[in-house]
Amino acid sequence: MAASSDTAPKTNAKTTGDDGGHSAGLSRWLVVAIPYLWLAIFFVAPFLIIFKISLSDTAIAIPPYTPVFEGFGAIGDFVSQLDFENYVFLTDDPLYIEAYISSLKIALVSTVLLLIVGYPMALAMARASSTIRPTLVMLVILPFWTSFLIRVYAWIGILKPDGLLTLLLHAIGLMGPDDQVQIFRTDTAVYIGMVYSYLPFMVLPLYSALEKMDHSLIEAANDLGCPPWKAFWKITFPLSLPGVIAGSMICFIPITGEFVIPDLLGGADTLMIGKTLWTEFFGNRDWPLASAVAVVLLVLLVVPIMVFQNQQKKVA
């Protein structure tokens, strides 16, 4: 409803005359201005700063960078001092490029896995009887309320070589008593963690797209001679595409920059850009380089973010 017409309270004959009209105008203005300013200062301005600092030289002092740009009179200075050194460094060192590619790959594979697990789940939820559907939704949301960190941590105890999965496989005899599960600190563990942590984010948009769908459409397809599995591909799936896109974007974008999961479950060779950025920042204390890493990541994610925003606007 983005284009809804301006239907905000209008003062009519009853209120013109007293100060109702004036104060309404002011309060109306404040309603927009307060959150707008807050986000401009704490969300948009930081991006300008991060961009600026990514163009600075590294220094030893804290804050560990020498500013490129002081005051507003020095635009000329700024341009002449522009320094793409950090970006050049990013492209020179194959480690960074590999980290970006590997992040995108892990995010893509995770998103596909999430779709494979999440779609049947959302479909089963949407097809459940309407009496138990609210409970199922509640059950999907509940883990989302409990801490992300804790949920990832819980998997360490399961996936460790001497962890519960090994124990379970020993118990049911699928594995010899001397073998151990070698998943912890590998990419497989990262994928398990991603699917586990992001599943609610994938299932909920899919569910809301599927649940809205009129069941008589499927019946109409069957009635016209289309068997159920074919009706799924011709009707259900195309109509759920907005949910598929929303769910995929909601998962893909943050997964690309994910830090906690690769750090706790991944191995030394699990390359993810969130981890790289963290190391540059906290380990090497190279703030400008970390900023450059962040700016490039942001640029990579601009298109998915735009897709996501469009989708959200359509839904609203």
Partner: peptide, 16 residues
């Protein structure tokens, strides 16, 4: 249903 020689016009029309 998909093999029956009947066709139905739905109350909600159910147009795709």
């Amino acid at each position: 249903p998909y093999k029956r020689p009947t066709n139905m016009m739905f109350q909600s029309y159910a147009l795709f």
